[in-house]
Computed example of a mutant assay.
Amino acid sequence: MPSRAVIIGGTGQVGLATARRLIGDGWDVQVVSRGATAVPDGCWHIEADARDADGLHAIVGTDTDLLLSCVAFDALDAGCLVHAGRSAGRIVAISSASVYCDNQARTLDEAARGGFPSFSVPLTEQSPTIPPGPETYSTRKRAMEALLLGKSACPVTILRPCAIHGPESKHAREWWFVKRLLDGRAVIPLAYEGRSRFQTTSVAAIADAVVKAVAGDLPEIANVSDADSPSVVEIGRAIMAIMGVKAELVGLSDDPDFPPSHGLTPWSVSQPMIVRGAATSATRYAEAAAPAVHWLVECVTSANWTQILPQLAAYKNAHFDYEKEDLVVITSECIHFP
């Protein structure tokens, strides 16, 4: 008899990637979301609310080996999972590496106001975290983790990815480079000399981690990351190689502020955030990024990108102010990479 998985919030990039992986491994997969939608071949869709604990419990029943939540954001979500999954074989919840803090208790949430955290890197599962609470995204994620680990009747695994990349994302950071290359930009300026390192995590690595968690091969909390932590220059070069297009990447002199004034990419940070842990992948970013890049080239255009990528579009800065970029390149001291 095949193993059975219920994936809550399964129509996003993490849920879809994991569903496809489990289906390929012979699992019976049911995807739960609030609205009717297309799902991968080989799995079933159930329309339900992630906070309808009784309704979820009826779906999970007593024969579910894996209850995976991709949309557990706070203690209320965790309480619903505890109730719904009390007879499940294992609960896996997607959290975030944003729960880690530096020695001054700064997290990513306060970076724009109080400066980017100065982490002791690499961050591991033993690194300090922000206290749980209702105040910010990161404190709510910690509250979710704490309640699940403390109250669940079945085994729990918490996965902490960082900058997630993969197809079907609403926050596809790779579009920052892909659109410029499609638009024929010859020179691309990068803040912080292009040396920023903001840990990447592929959806394939997350799916692998879910499989390992179900097998009991991970601890209760596991960081999920690519094998490397590429700099922005390395990310740009990887995307160019995938697309078969070249542009000149130039590094702008260090900007003391965060966010920087010019050359701001979705990975631009003044201090490195490098993550390693129990679910670090064996695959490097340059090898793992192709599915996201190909999906962007095939499905996203200059006309529709804000609708397809609403989370990326919600950034306060203008991603594609080419006139400003050209002026910066002409007037600023730049590092020209070989």
Results as ranks from 00 to 15, higher is better:
126 Q>H: 14
203 V>T: 03
64 T>K: 10
294 H>L: 14
136 T>Y: 11
80 C>W: 02
128 P>E: 12
59 I>K: 10
235 I>F: 08
154 C>I: 08
224 V>G: 00
128 P>V: 11
115 G>L: 08
45 H>A: 12
18 T>V: 05
104 Q>K: 12
60 V>P: 04
229 S>L: 02
308 I>V: 15
18 T>D: 00
258 F>E: 10
144 M>Y: 04
117 P>H: 09
232 V>L: 06
134 P>Q: 13
204 A>W: 00
133 G>Q: 08
217 D>V: 03
216 G>V: 09
154 C>V: 15
218 L>T: 01
43 C>L: 13
233 V>D: 01
249 L>Y: 05
135 E>H: 07
69 S>T: 15
116 F>H: 15
83 H>W: 04
85 G>S: 04
147 L>M: 13
117 P>K: 12
303 A>I: 10
5 A>I: 06
262 H>F: 08
219 P>H: 11
59 I>H: 09
51 R>I: 06
82 V>A: 11
160 R>F: 04
177 F>I: 13
7 I>S: 07
189 P>I: 06
291 P>L: 05
94 I>H: 00
282 A>S: 13
125 E>H: 12
243 M>W: 05
318 A>Y: 03
152 S>C: 14
16 L>D: 02
272 P>G: 12
31 V>L: 15
22 L>N: 01
172 A>C: 10
68 L>R: 06
217 D>N: 14
257 D>M: 08
2 P>K: 14
45 H>L: 15
275 V>K: 05
79 G>V: 03
293 V>I: 13
229 S>Q: 02
115 G>C: 11
152 S>I: 08
136 T>W: 12
76 L>N: 03
294 H>M: 12
287 E>P: 01
281 S>C: 00
251 G>T: 13
36 A>H: 12
207 A>M: 08
192 Y>C: 09
184 G>S: 11
166 G>V: 03
330 I>G: 01
42 G>L: 10
2 P>M: 14
251 G>Y: 01
237 R>S: 13
226 D>W: 00
61 G>T: 04
324 K>F: 08
25 D>K: 15
117 P>S: 12
102 D>A: 14
222 A>T: 01
115 G>D: 10
